[in-house]
Design a protein around this nucleic acid. Structure first.
Length: 849
RNA sequence: GCCGCGGUGGCGGAAUUGGUAUACGCGCUGGUCUCAAACACCAGUGAGCUUAUGUUCAUGAGGGUUCGACUCCCUCCCGCGGCACCA
């Protein structure tokens, strides 16, 4: 009853593997296309999100091959990471064993989907062949000063027992386990992402093939602000304290001065009378967690230090406070507070009774001013008392000495220039982006290849000693501290520089996002043992032409990978700026309105679907149900429909093949590479012409739709062709040649979506070579053209008639036909035709009164 | 709060440059087959009024531009996502 998908899928998967039809080779003379999906974490079983991601990529890869590209389409595993350690603790096994067996299981499942990967290029990040080069790259970063160690306040996840990067804390919670992140002062390894902040921002402009929202997210994350450094001086000592401000135009409105509670100057400047209060405040803030500290809703708190600074522009003495909303990590950790024009400062000033001085007048002006009030200070005082919030918009500078009357936007530049002339400030740029904290106090990751020697200090492990192997015999327990630190054998080492016996190895491992920051380069030459990759191979295959993955990686992975690419470029190992030319972010697969999750019990298991309907039906449905960027609602009824279509497809094509082969047996000229259909003795009937036209229209539609990733509409075009072909066969004498062409075209156009079924049917056409090695058909415009078209006739914009006219109709003829229509006439009674709009070959609109 | 994306039948979704709104699929209704059911196949299926015919109204709401608006502009409502004391 149903087509035998089980045998077919198994048979062809084996066949493709044996023939190696998806292997790829560097060939500098051949145009290339690199299609890549974000590689998975080997959690054990694939889920529908994977199926969706890889089905999309597989269509693109197969289509690209048929378009004549040399295609690189690899797969691998992001195999390091915490879940392996947790699973090892839970099941009393080793992370390595757990990971490797998961990888094996996932490969089996991925192969069942019929994805056209070149499996020989598989990259597993937990393999020493791979992480060796991650260590090598780390040392190159170190030598360039891009990897460094510093003591800093870092985010600590108490549940994962490790530190986290800034990006890995979402709303104060650990991105992985959602525990509340704590703040800890630790000495850790960082990569200098800030050094590339400007390039990471600027080069977003190169990425025309990226979704806008991803670029916006990265732009926000980098958070570039232009402004100025301004030097204030301590009233007592004359010592300089620099602030960063984006609003030099409001400098005259600074009525107080703020330091971050952690600022190193605090002890020095706090007066004895204020010491007790200041110490208490600093202790309180230190206790505060990251969520409260960074929540805008929590009222601002602060304390007076007893000291004053001098405003360099007007010489005013203003008090120095500490405030919890001033961050040590941004700018200089010191802020000039302008309460009239900054909401935070405003709230702070109101709370502690600090004066507010307006220095920017809104363009709407003040009634008092329009009346020509000469006493500006009285007027402003009045306003200030009424003010309910800071005015942060543009306006005109007032109360600002020589700058009075200057528009504020202009004022920013003027004040900055003035500061530069007086040598008390300069133009400056600041970024929200922080350096990337990469140390992890965990076992299952790439060991940081560093040795600490009591004599030589920090010493990178020499090339010839790489990789620093992760010991196999470590017991992961999940208790505090790096597991590696407990292995004497690992920790104790001789210094490679001076031979000292009592050197110690770094026991932290790298953030796994390092592993995924260059894996796409490794795929180009996965077995290279002379370097992380072969530069020629990389320069041939890279950049990735089409990258496909989830939106959840919009910031972290995609920014780290861009950063790595730029640094590796500057190491001279590759010659492009950006790793991913085009990016497609696919939507989630949801069920019953919610993301699939075990706790909700709405998980749909891909292997179950493949058992029941086959890989082709599963792929087809997931591509058909929704365009790839949108979330997709899983529907059990929907996949039934896709399966029904495949059965219909199967019956139709089997029937056609029988008819076609019959012609062959009769000794007619071979159907393949057939002579021109129109020169055939049997003159094509109108029905045959319609089918021919449909074939070429479908070629165009499917091609255009795949180019735009609108797989859902590509599939619906194929469904329409099948429907038409079924109808065509109902007539008694179908034209065998056209049938042959239709059948072959249908199979080829469908093959990227349903590779097994089409391959099976293709082989029944007595074809020797795989359908996946065929060329993509080219549509012929003149054949897609209709002989007759339906003319839409509107009266005053409303459709009143549809008239069939010959394709070559002139505008004048269209007009005549429209006016001649009886239906049109009935709407034109008692009316005068004012004008007629003619859209060639489409529509006539008669405007009448 | 700021930024971005979206809102079309009972449902998933089409409509490529402003030119037939609702392609394709699901579901539903009726029919064929069957003892019956499932499967399959055929027909119908936006809503209202209407005897057929037809006609009016419909793309979150309200305005505007236009011969003509799902599409462009303005105001608003709702949903989703990102950022959120970054000076």
């Amino acid at each position: 009853m149903t087509y035998p998908f089980k045998e077919i899928e198994k048979k062809w998967q084996k066949n493709w593997q044996n023939q190696g039809i998806y292997k790829s080779y560097t060939d500098s003379k051949h145009k290339k296309r690199y299609v890549l999906e974000m590689f998975p974490y080997p959690s054990g079983d694939i889920h529908m999100g994977h199926v969706r991601n890889y089905s999309i990529g597989d269509v693109v890869a197969r289509y690209s091959r048929m378009q004549g590209y040399n295609v690189l389409y690899p797969m691998g595993f992001d195999a390091f990471g915490l879940p392996a350690e947790n699973a090892a603790i839970k099941h009393n096994t080793q992370p390595k064993e757990w990971t490797l067996s998961n990888i094996e299981r996932m490969i089996v499942q991925l192969k069942r989907l019929g994805l056209s990967y070149d499996w020989d290029r598989q990259v597993v990040t937990a393999s020493p062949d791979y992480y060796r080069w991650g260590q090598w790259l780390f040392i190159k970063f170190y030598e360039k000063g891009l990897a460094y160690r510093k003591k800093a306040k870092v985010n600590w996840c108490p549940s994962c027992q490790t530190v986290l990067a800034n990006e890995q804390v979402e709303a104060g919670l650990c991105w992985r386990c959602e525990s509340e992140a704590q703040s800890k002062e630790l000495e850790q390894w960082f990569l200098k992402t800030t050094e590339y902040a400007d390039q990471l921002l600027e080069d977003l402009n190169q990425l025309e093939g990226w979704p806008n929202r991803v670029k916006v997210m990265q732009e926000n994350w980098i958070g570039k602000s232009k402004g100025a450094y301004v030097d204030f001086t301590l009233a007592d000592t004359g010592e300089k304290i620099t602030v960063f401000t984006t609003r030099p135009d409001t400098l005259y409105g600074a009525t107080f001065f703020l330091l971050a509670p952690e600022h190193s100057l605090v002890d020095k400047i706090t007066t004895p009378e204020q010491k007790e209060e200041v110490d208490k405040f600093r202790a309180d803030v230190a206790k505060q967690n990251e969520i409260d500290r960074t929540s805008a809703e929590i009222p601002k708190r602060g304390v007076f230090t007893g000291s004053f600074v001098i405003n360099p522009l007007n010489g005013e003495r203003i008090p120095v406070w500490l405030a919890d909303y001033v961050l040590m990590e941004y700018g200089t950790g010191a802020v000039m507070a302008v309460p009239a024009h900054d909401q935070r400062d405003f709230e702070f000033a109101r709370k502690y009774g600090i004066p507010v001085i307006v220095v920017i007048e809104p363009p709407s002006g003040h009634p008092e001013q329009s009346e020509g009030s000469p006493d500006s200070s009285a007027r402003l005082k009045n306003d200030v008392l009424e003010m309910e919030e800071a005015y942060v918009g543009e306006g005109v500078m007032v109360n600002s000495g020589p700058f009075n009357g200057t528009p504020s936007l202009e004022g920013i530049g003027k004040v900055t220039k003035y500061l530069e002339e007086k040598n008390i400030g300069k133009e400056a740029i600041n970024y929200r982006l922080r350096d990337w904290l990469i140390s992890r106090q965990r076992y299952w990751g790439t060991p940081i290849p560093i040795i600490y020697c009591p004599e030589c200090g920090t010493v990178p492990v020499p090339d010839e000693d790489l990789p620093v192997l992760l010991p196999d015999d470590i017991k992961v327990s999940g208790v505090a501290g790096s597991p590696l630190a407990k292995s004497q054998e690992f920790v104790e080492v001789t210094c490679p520089k001076c031979g000292a016996q009592d050197a110690r190895r770094e026991t932290d491992t790298m953030d796994t996002f390092i592993d995924s920051s260059w894996y796409f380069l490794r795929y180009c030459s996965p077995k290279d043992d002379k370097g992380p990759f072969d530069t020629d191979d990389v320069n041939y295959w890279m950049p990735v032409d089409q990258y496909i993955g989830g939106i959840e990686h919009a910031i972290m992975h995609l920014m780290y990978a861009r950063f790595f690419t730029k640094v590796i470029r500057d190491l001279g190992l590759l010659d492009f700026d950006e790793p991913f030319t085009n990016l497609l972010t696919q939507g989630m697969v949801i069920k019953d309105g919610a993301k699939m999750s075990k706790s909700k019990g709405n998980v749909v298991d891909p292997t179950f679907m493949m058992d029941k309907y086959g890989a082709d039906a599963t792929r087809l449905f997931i591509l058909f149900a929704s365009p790839p960027q949108k979330d997709l609602d899983w529907s059990d009824a929907g996949i039934e429909g896709s399966f029904r279509f495949l059965n219909r497809f199967w019956r139709l094509v089997r029937n056609n093949i029988e008819l076609i082969n019959m012609v062959k047996a009769e000794g007619a000229s071979g159907p393949k590479e057939g002579t021109d259909i129109f020169s055939d003795r049997d003159a094509p009937s109108p029905k045959t012409n319609n089918l021919l036209r449909m074939i070429h229209q479908t070629i165009k539609r499917v091609t255009d739709d795949i180019n735009r990733f609108n797989f859902n509409t590509a599939i619906s075009a194929l469904m329409e062709l099948v429907n038409d072909m079924v109808k065509y066969n109902e007539q008694s004498e179908p034209n065998k040649k056209v049938l042959n062409e239709a059948t072959r075209t249908l199979l080829i156009l469908s093959s990227p979506f349903i590779p097994h079924l089409t391959e099976e049917l293709w082989s029944k056409l007595e074809e020797k070579e795989s359908i996946h090695r065929q060329s993509w058909p080219v549509y012929k415009k003149e054949m897609a053209k209709a002989e007759e078209i339906t003319l839409i006739v509107q009266v005053n914009g409303k459709v009143r008639d549809r008239i069939t006219v010959p394709e070559g109709v002139s505008e004048e003829e269209m007009k005549e036909a429209a006016l001649a229509s009886d239906k049109t006439k009935s709407f034109l009674e008692d009316k005068e035709v004012i004008k007629t709009i003619v859209i060639p070959k489409k529509l006539v609109n008669i405007v009448a009164k």
